[in-house]
Simulated scan of single mutants.
Amino acid sequence: MKLTRRDFLKISSAATAGLALSGMGFNLTPVQAYTWELRTKDAKETPTICCYCAVGCGIICHTDKKTGQVIYTEGDADHPINGGSLCAKGASSYQLAQNPKRVTKVLYRAPNSDKWVAKDWKWALQEIAKRVKKSRDASFVEKNAQGQIVNRCMGIASVGSAAMDNEECWIYQAMLRALGLVYIEHQARI
């Protein structure tokens, strides 16, 4: 049998390929497919807005229907601003809810103290309400210099959040106006 150089290269390359594939575990026997269920299969999907900047990207938050815990977050593909894409901060928003280092208690430091004390939420909300009422009562102006009724609170100011949507802003403004606030600023971009 006459073996040409071309035939030798064909045979040796086929043998090399066969050895390489056999070494990688290449097998032509049928395999059984492995499947798994998505962890978000039975989760409740809630659309929300990213809390980091004023762009207002849409996020879908997946929560467990039984426990209410956040399972997964992803960009909302139907959102007109981001179309499903998220920046690094927005993509990591899942870690806001699922983080062992997250502070879950109210930390209070009394005036002239150098120590933080853990307090419960009921105490904190009552303390905030008490201080708002005290400040409002101390700085409330019922009538101006001309004797006209103005009902203004001159001792409290508010700076809103860029992450609030229109509905939240309306409720927030209604509360501030009910308190009589005059100094109201807001960074509404969404």
Rank of each mutant, 00 (worst) to 15 (best):
A17Q: 05
A17N: 08
A17K: 12
A17D: 08
A17G: 14
G18D: 06
L19F: 11
L19I: 11
L19C: 09
A20P: 01
A20R: 10
A20I: 15
A20T: 13
A20L: 15
S22V: 03
S22C: 03
S22E: 10
S22A: 11
G23C: 05
G23R: 08
G23T: 05
G23Q: 08
G25E: 03
G25K: 09
F26D: 03
F26Q: 01
F26Y: 12
N27E: 10
N27L: 07
N27Y: 00
N27S: 15
N27Q: 09
N27V: 08
L28F: 08
L28N: 12
T29W: 00
T29A: 15
T29G: 05
P30I: 00
V31T: 12
V31L: 11
Q32D: 07
Q32T: 14
Q32L: 06
A33R: 14
A33G: 04
Y34L: 12
T35K: 12
T35L: 04
T35W: 01
T35G: 12
T35I: 09
W36F: 11
E37H: 08
L38M: 09
L38E: 10
L38D: 14
L38H: 11
R39T: 02
R39Y: 00
R39G: 12
R39M: 08
T40P: 09
T40I: 15
K41T: 07
K41Y: 01
K41H: 06
D42L: 07
D42E: 12
D42V: 02
K44Y: 00
K44S: 02
K44D: 07
K44R: 11
E45C: 05
E45R: 13
T46A: 04
T46M: 14
T46S: 10
T46Q: 12
T46H: 06
T46W: 00
P47M: 05
P47Y: 03
P47N: 07
T48K: 02
T48W: 01
I49H: 01
I49K: 04
I49N: 04
I49P: 01
C50L: 07
C50E: 11
C51Y: 03
C51T: 12
Y52R: 08
Y52N: 10
Y52F: 14
Y52H: 15
C53K: 07
C53Y: 02
A54I: 00
V55K: 11
V55W: 00
V55M: 12
V55R: 03
V55Y: 02
G56D: 09
G56E: 07
G56R: 10
G56H: 08
C57K: 04
C57W: 02
G58T: 06
G58W: 02
G58Y: 03
G58S: 06
I59M: 08
I59P: 08
I60G: 05
I60Q: 04
I60C: 06
I60H: 04
